[in-house]
Amino acid sequence: MTVTAGWYMTLAAVLFGIGAVGILVRRNAVVMFMCIELMLNAVNLTFIAAGQELRDLTGQLAVFFVLVVAAAEVVVGLAIIVAVFRNSETASVDEFNELKG
């Protein structure tokens, strides 16, 4: 059996699923954010695998950009989390439900 691109994509799908479930289940803001990063990584793996499969360098370039954007997003997101949770006791996002209908 050779390892085809499909295998990597399956792995990426599993990782993505784990990340998605993580967001839905965990309440700690930082951990939720890490699950998002997990999902992004899974997507990166998909890109690379697809790029190999389709013999195109664009896959790796896409990963590059995803990486950059993810980094920027982490910066801002963590700044927000710090700002919001600075003065609260728990790090739970369920605290902030004042925008309910």
Partner: peptide, 12 residues
Amino acid sequence: VIMLIGVDRSED
């Protein structure tokens, strides 16, 4: 950030 806000807080 975890050190700043996340470590010793427990989760319900």
